[in-house]
Design a binder for these strands. Structure first.
Length: 797
DNA sequence: CAGTGAGCGAGCTTCCGCTTGACTT
C-alpha cells in the first residue's frame, strides 16, 4: 500500500513523475475533467443562483471509481492538476467526487517536470483556490447558456441540428466576413515598371535587377513612361547601407506549431496535434497543448550547452520570451524536445519531421541574433520622375539563422531579392539593358487556411490550445465551411518592353487565384452568421470573449461574485433569445437573380432542403424547375448567366451501343451517365460542352481501368484482389471462411508480393491473421453498430 | 455516390475545455 496518492491530468505526465518520486508515492491521472454539466439537459438551475448540476462523465466513471479506491487507502492525496482555471476546477471536482477531506488533501502544482521542481512543489502545498474555481464555473456556465439557448433558436429559425457558441460562431464569422470582402473586392489592373541595369564601369556580365514603386493606370501612361526612358541618362542616386539585427522567434506554443507545421510541412491542424500527441506520449517532447513560450531553466541550460559545444559560445544567447497572446494561462512550458541531445528520433517520417521542426525552433530561440547588412540602391535619371530601387542582403553573422528561419503566410514577401550588389558610388552611370512595364492586378484579400484561422483566433483570445482543432472540425461538420483547393485561373496581361531603343508590346497570360486547402464558407454558414449578427450582435462581437475574460479574471481574484456576473449577463442575453424566437421571421436566403429570357419566369437562388438551389418560376408556380448549385457557387454571388446554365443539365448526348449517354452535375462533380453506370467527366472538360465522342472515350477509358484494377477473385470466400491507389489489396465481403466469419473490409497485402500469383490459402491466411486496414474497417464497424442501435441502416453525413 | 425540393410533426439536435482510447460475429 502506498501512503501518498498524487493525481495529475495526463497519464504520460503521471508516468514521468512517478519515476521522480519513487517509493511511497502512487501517481495517477484523472484524464482531464471528470465531471461536467449534463450532456443532454441544461444542467443549470437558473432560478437558484445558476447552481450547476454536475455529473460524472460517462467515460470517466471507471477512472473515478479507481481513484476513489486508491484515495481511501492513501494517507495523503496530492491534487496536482495544472495551475490554471481549468486545472483548479479539476482539483476541486476531484476533491468533491472522491469524497476527500481537507485534513489529508493537499493542492500542489508542478512548474516543470524535474526532480527538483517536483520536490519543491511537495514542500509547498496550498489549499484549493475557490476564487479560481468559481472563475471556471462562470466560464463553463456562460458557455453552456450561450450554446444551449442559441442553438435551439437556429433550429427554429434556420434548420435543425445547427449549433452556435461563443467560440465557433465567431470563428465562422471570421471566415464569412473574409469571403464577403473578397466578393466585394474590385480587382483593378495597373502597370508596374522593373528594369535590368548595367553599371558602365563594370564588366558586361554584371547586371542589376531593380523595381520601381511607380504605378501607371493604363497602357498610354505606361508607354509614355517608356518613351521618356529611351533617352534617359541613368545613374546611381542613392546608396543606403544599414546593419540590422534579426532575432529568433520564440519556441512553439500550440498555435505557432500548428501554423509552422502547416506552412513548412503541409500538415492540417488536427494532423499536427495527432503527431505531436504521439511524440509527447513517447516522452520526446513536452506537452503539446500550451499557450506559453516559457522554457524551464533546465531546458535553457541544456540548450545553451548544446549550442556552445556545437557552434561556439558566440552563437549562444539564452533568453526567455514573453507570452503575448490574449488570455494566456501559461500552465505549461513551451513545446520543446524533452532531451535536446536527441537531434533525431525513431518514428514515422511525419513524426521525424515534426520533431525536427520543434527541435530547431527551440534551439534557435536560444541562439544569438543574426546580423545582416541590407543595401538599397536608388537609380534615377533627370528625364524621369520615377525611381528604381535594388536591394540586397548580406549576412554578416548568421546566429540563429544557422538553424531555423520562420516562414510567412505571404509567399511574395519571401522572394525578397537576394542578389549580390556590385560596389558603386553615387553618380556612377548605368545603362538600362531592359525596362519592362508589366500589367498587374490589385490582389484580393486571402482566404483563411486552418492555421491562419487559428492564428487569428488566438489574437482575439477566442478558443484554447485544446480546442482550436476541434472547433474547425465542428464548423465543418455543421456544413458551415468546407476546406477546399481550387485550380488557378488564367487572365491576360500586357507587357511593354524597352530594349535597345525599341518599345515592344507583348500579350501573355498569367495564372492567379489558385487556392490550396483554404476555408470556404457555405451558404448555410453565411445564413447562420447573418442571422446571429442581426439578433445577437454582442455575442458575435470580436471583443466579446475578451470582455467576459476580464470579468472571469475579476472573479479569480475575488473582486466579483461569479453568479452575480452570470446573472447580469443572462438578463440581457435571455431577453434577446426570447425576442428572436417571437419577433423574428424564419431566416431565408432567397435572391432573385432576374428573369429567364426564354420563358419570362423569375430565376431565384435559395437554400433548399438538400442545399443551395436555383429555381425557375415563382414559389407558387406549380411547374417550377430546380437545379442544385455546383460546389463553389454561392447564393450570394451566383449570376443569372451561371444559374441559367445549371438548367441545361442533365444534357442528353445521344446513344452509344444503343444505350443512352447523358451528362450532369452530381454531389461529387460532373459525371457521365451511361445506362446505369457512372463515369466522371474528365478533368478540364465541362459537362456543358463535352461531346458524345469525348464521353464515349471517357467511358472506354474507365472500362479498361476497371478491368486492369481487377486482378483476381475467389468468390467462394467473397474475396477480390484489386489494384488500388496504393497497390494491390484484398477486398473481402465478410462471407464465412471455413465456417468462420471475419470482419469485412480491405486487407493489406504485404509489399513485394506478386498479387496475381496469390492462392486461395494465401487470402485465407491474411484475413484470418489480420484486421481490415485503415479507417474503412473502423468506420464500417462503427457504422454497423450505429445502424443496429438506431434501427435504420441509412445515415446521412 | 451520381436524385431529391410538399406538409404534418413524433423525438432529437446544441456549448467550451480538460484528457485519451477506439470495433465485431
Amino acid at each position: 500500500m502506498s501512503e501518498n496518492l498524487v493525481i495529475v491530468e495526463s497519464p504520460a505526465k503521471a508516468k514521468t513523475i512517478e519515476k521522480f518520486l519513487g517509493k511511497g508515492y502512487t501517481v495517477k491521472s484523472s484524464f482531464g475533467h471528470i465531471r461536467d454539466l449534463s450532456k443532454k439537459k441544461l444542467g443549470i438551475d437558473i432560478e437558484n443562483g445558476f447552481e450547476p448540476d454536475y455529473e460524472i462523465s460517462a467515460d470517466k466513471k471507471k477512472v473515478v471509481s479507481e481513484l476513489k479506491a486508491l484515495a481511501r487507502k492513501a494517507s495523503t492525496v496530492w491534487l496536482a492538476s495544472d495551475e490554471d482555471r481549468e486545472g483548479e476546477a479539476i482539483s476541486w471536482h476531484l476533491f468533491q467526487t472522491l469524497g476527500l477531506s481537507a485534513g489529508n488533501t493537499k493542492r500542489i502544482a508542478f512548474h516543470e517536470i524535474t526532480k527538483h521542481a517536483i520536490l519543491e512543489a511537495i514542500d509547498n502545498p496550498r489549499e484549493i483556490d475557490m476564487n479560481l474555481v468559481n472563475a471556471q464555473q462562470a466560464r463553463r456556465v456562460l458557455d453552456r447558456l450561450v450554446g444551449f439557448e442559441l442553438s435551439p433558436v437556429l433550429w427554429k429559425k434556420v434548420a435543425p441540428k445547427l449549433s452556435a457558441g461563443r467560440v465557433q460562431s465567431v470563428a465562422l464569422k471570421l471566415i464569412v466576413e473574409r469571403e464577403r470582402e473578397i466578393l466585394d473586392f474590385k480587382t483593378e489592373p495597373y502597370f508596374k515598371a522593373s528594369g535590368v541595369f548595367h553599371p558602365v564601369k563594370e564588366k558586361a556580365s554584371v547586371k542589376l535587377n531593380a523595381s520601381s514603386e511607380g504605378r501607371f493606370p493604363d497602357e498610354v501612361s505606361a508607354v509614355s513612361f517608356l518613351e521618356k526612358c529611351k533617352d534617359a541618362h541613368f545613374s546611381l542616386e542613392g546608396c543606403d547601407t544599414r546593419e540590422m539585427e534579426k532575432s529568433p522567434a520564440p519556441p512553439f506554443t500550440t498555435s505557432l506549431l500548428q501554423q509552422e507545421a502547416s506552412r513548412k510541412l503541409g500538415f492540417s491542424v488536427s494532423q499536427t496535434m495527432m503527431i505531436a500527441q504521439r511524440l509527447y506520449e513517447s516522452g520526446l517532447i513536452t506537452y503539446m497543448r500550451t499557450d506559453s513560450t516559457n522554457l524551464s531553466s533546465l531546458a535553457i541550460n541544456t540548450i545553451k550547452e548544446l549550442i556552445v559545444s556545437s557552434w561556439g559560445a558566440e552563437y549562444s544567447r539564452p533568453r526567455q520570451f514573453k507570452t503575448k497572446s490574449l488570455g494566456a494561462q501559461e500552465a505549461h512550458e513551451a513545446i520543446r524536445p524533452t532531451y535536446v541531445a536527441n537531434t533525431t528520433i525513431e518514428g514515422t517520417a511525419q513524426e521525424k519531421k515534426l520533431y525536427e521542426l520543434i527541435w530547431k525552433r527551440a534551439v534557435a530561440s536560444q541562439m544569438s541574433n543574426a546580423r545582416v547588412e541590407k543595401t538599397t540602391l536608388t537609380i534615377g535619371a533627370p528625364e524621369i520622375e520615377e525611381k528604381f530601387t535594388s536591394s540586397g542582403e548580406q549576412i554578416l553573422f548568421p546566429g540563429f539563422l544557422k538553424v531555423y528561419l520562420e516562414s510567412t503566410d505571404d509567399d511574395n514577401a519571401a522572394q525578397d531579392e537576394n542578389q549580390i550588389l556590385p560596389a558603386m558610388n553615387i553618380g556612377d552611370s548605368l545603362n538600362a539593358v531592359k525596362i519592362a512595364v508589366a500589367q498587374k492586378y490589385t490582389q484580393k484579400p486571402q482566404r483563411y487556411s486552418e492555421a491562419s484561422l487559428v492564428k487569428k483566433m488566438e489574437e482575439l483570445g477566442i478558443g484554447r490550445p485544446s480546442t482550436y482543432a476541434p472547433t474547425i472540425t465542428t464548423i465543418t461538420q455543421r456544413g458551415y465551411i468546407k476546406r477546399e483547393s481550387r485550380p488557378a485561373l488564367q487572365r491576360d496581361i500586357v507587357v511593354f518592353s524597352l530594349k535597345a531603343g525599341n518599345i515592344s508590346r507583348e500579350e501573355s497570360k498569367e495564372n492567379y487565384g489558385a487556392e490550396k486547402n483554404k476555408l470556404f464558407p457555405q451558404d448555410i454558414g453565411m445564413l447562420v452568421t447573418d442571422y446571429l449578427e442581426n439578433n445577437f450582435k454582442d455575442i458575435l462581437d470580436y471583443g466579446f470573449t475578451a470582455s467576459v475574460e476580464e470579468d472571469f479574471d475579476k472573479v479569480a481574484c475575488g473582486k466579483l461574485v461569479w453568479n452575480k456576473m452570470i446573472a447580469a449577463f443572462y438578463k440581457g442575453f435571455h431577453k434577446e433569445v426570447e425576442n428572436s424566437i417571437t419577433e423574428t421571421e424564419r431566416a431565408h436566403s432567397e435572391r432573385v437573380l432576374g428573369t429567364d429570357p426564354a420563358s419570362g419566369k423569375p430565376i431565384i437562388a435559395r437554400l433548399g432542403k438538400f442545399g443551395p438551389l436555383v429555381q425557375k418560376g415563382a414559389n407558387d408556380d406549380s411547374e417550377k424547375q430546380f437545379a442544385s448549385l455546383a460546389s463553389g457557387q454561392l447564393i450570394g454571388s451566383i449570376t443569372l448567366e451561371e444559374a441559367l446554365k445549371l438548367f441545361e443539365l442533365p444534357r442528353n448526348l445521344g446513344e452509344y451501343n444503343e444505350v443512352k449517354v447523358s451528362v450532369s452535375n452530381g454531389r461529387f462533380g460532373p459525371y457521365i451517365k451511361y445506362g446505369s453506370s457512372f463515369v466522371s467527366v474528365p478533368k478540364g472538360m465541362s459537362p456543358y460542352t463535352i461531346t458524345l465522342q469525348q464521353a464515349v472515350e471517357a467511358i472506354e477509358n474507365h472500362k479498361t481501368r476497371e478491368e486492369r484494377k481487377h486482378i483476381k477473385e475467389f468468390p467462394e470466400i467473397g474475396v477480390e484482389i484489386l489494384d488500388g491507389r496504393f497497390g494491390p489489396y484484398i477486398k473481402y465481403s465478410g462471407a464465412a471462411i471455413d465456417g468462420k466469419d471475419y470482419a469485412a473490409g480491405n486487407y493489406k497485402i504485404e509489399k513485394g508480393t506478386d498479387a496475381s500469383a496469390m492462392s486461395l490459402e494465401d487470402c485465407k491466411r491474411i484475413i484470418s491473421s489480420s484486421t481490415p486496414s485503415g479507417k474503412s474497417g473502423f468506420r464500417a464497424a462503427k457504422a454497423a453498430k450505429a445502424a443496429k442501435s438506431s434501427g435504420t441502416g441509412k445515415t446521412r453525413k
